[in-house]
Design a protein around this nucleic acid. Sequence first.
RNA 1: GCGCCCGUAGCUCAGUCGGAUAGAGCAUCGGAUUCCUAAUCCGGAGGCCACAGGUUCGAAUCCUGUCGGGCGCACCA
Length: 593
Amino acid sequence: MRRAGRCGGGVANKRISVVSLYTRFRQSLDTVLDQLVAAGTLPADADRAGITVEPPRDPSHGDLATNAAMVLAKPARTSPRVLAEAIAAGLTAIADVEAADIAGPGFINLRLAPTVWAEELRTIAQEREDYGRSGIGAGKTVNIEYVSANPTGPMHMGHCRGAVVGDALADLLAFAGHKVVREYYVNDAGGQVDTLARSAHLRYREALGEDIGEIPEGLYPGDYLVPVGKLLADAYGDRYVAAPVAEWLAEFRTRTVAAMMDMIRADLALLGIRHDVFASEAELQAAGKPDDAEAWLRARDLVYDGVLEAPKGETPEDWEPVELPLFRSSRFGDDQDRPIKKSNGSWTYFGADLAYHYQKAQSADELIDIWGADHAGTVKRIKAAVAALTEEKTRFDVKLVQMVRLLRAGEPIKMSKRSGNFVTLADVVGEVGKDVVRFTMLTRKADAQMDFDFAKVVEASRDNPVWYVQYAHARIASLHRKIGELGIALTTPDLARLNEAELAVVGLAAQFPRIVESAAVSREPHRIAFYLGDLAAAFHALWNMGNDDPALRMIVEADPVLTATRLFLADQIGQVIRNGLKLMGVEAAEELN
RNA sequence: GCGCCCGUAGCUCAGUCGGAUAGAGCAUCGGAUUCCUAAUCCGGAGGCCACAGGUUCGAAUCCUGUCGGGCGCACCA
């Protein structure tokens, strides 16, 4: 089941040629600080990690702001404002800086020459789909495990959000320079896959003409197993109809799991998701990986034979103390030690999962798991296991994704697992489309609950961010059509003619690289969605100015130079929107209908 | 009982590894617009960032406690 080939995923690793505007000024600032060190104003060993160069919250403060003086005042044994004077003097000498003012408790606000923004626009035009690419992850391999739905049926909406968040995060980290491995853990070893095989056996008999009646309680009732039954009937004829379970169970299990995985892969493909590695729990066990991990841990006294404490709260009636091999997860922050084997000698889910993470850590510098919030209770033990097995050298994050409530006309859709009546991912994608599903899943922090209303996500209005961002892009595309119809002969843009409002939108577009970096560092792909909403809003506001004053329209027929300039601006905004949408796996619309 | 996540405008939510006067959409209020650069636009009001302490130049953000909400709590997966 495990695929050997490892491809980089949707976004390839490329080297970036140009550092972002903010990074560039951060470097200039460092040069100024070096000069102050040489002059004896600053100690050489002062920690500069807390220094930021970012856009000020209030645009009237200027184009860039730095907190350097406040961070360094203490090591320099002086007041922030005095130090700010010295730093500001150095910054003023930089060519693109028109003014450096000191404000508030010691901020230094920089006002940049308008040519800086014009230049940034050209940078976007040059780098095109690479604009925003970062090198912060260079040299690091990140393994991200997501979806990992049990191979017992098709994907339903419960899996959808984790799939989208994981995939977008993988794209984001790749864009930020990491080597990314996208992995799916196939839980094909537990009792549930035996149940699956039994359920398939029933369908197999049905395919051979038997009336199987109601599906008994405890077996999977869904009709997605009907074709599997036919498949098995074709493969085996009536050989296993009356045979003892032991004779067919293993073979039926393998074939049915394979069929389920084909189905899941097809579901994922509907969302544009493809994993690099499918890791089989059964193969992991067959290869003795959990035994290896156990031996390694026992040698360090991190696994011992002990008796489990009674569960907290209400003690179940059938609870009995038994001796089991326990991992000392309490040494690494867990509340209690956790069994890695069951009393029947087989591995617990945790025992196998621990070995699986050990294996992943062999070939990655950092690990990320995307889990549903219902597994929150097991985060501590797996983090403890990774800490122990990697001797705390591998960064490991578990991102919890909260549930999505499906609504139709404001009313929650009722789902019942028992009857097999759940809303499948394929249904939802079929109804509203891949792009709407993906974007919507990223319009909220992963750990916040979310409503998905079938009506609202396709609504053409201001308060639907999916539509609003697409609309901005479509408007930009429409400019080209319109200019063609009008037969305007475009000239070379004259970026000196950009007005203040337009330059402000460029400033927002120029933030894209740092938004990418901050989203990658904090592992929060939703930030891209919110940013695109802001950028789209700024562009729409610009566009709407043309309603009141025709001289402010994007297309001014009498002035081909101005039109070319504004088109150039609009195209670059469109480019940034496309780059952002691509990170979310959403296609940019050329036209809305 | 314990653990995890959360508590920001009337509602739904953002908030940059701690920064300046905490932001957006909806709803509300006040204006504009009948336009095809379409599926409205502009503006106002609205806040003890649950509460109380602490850390420091500076806290919605970090720490502790309290209150309130959600989820989880045997060898299941």
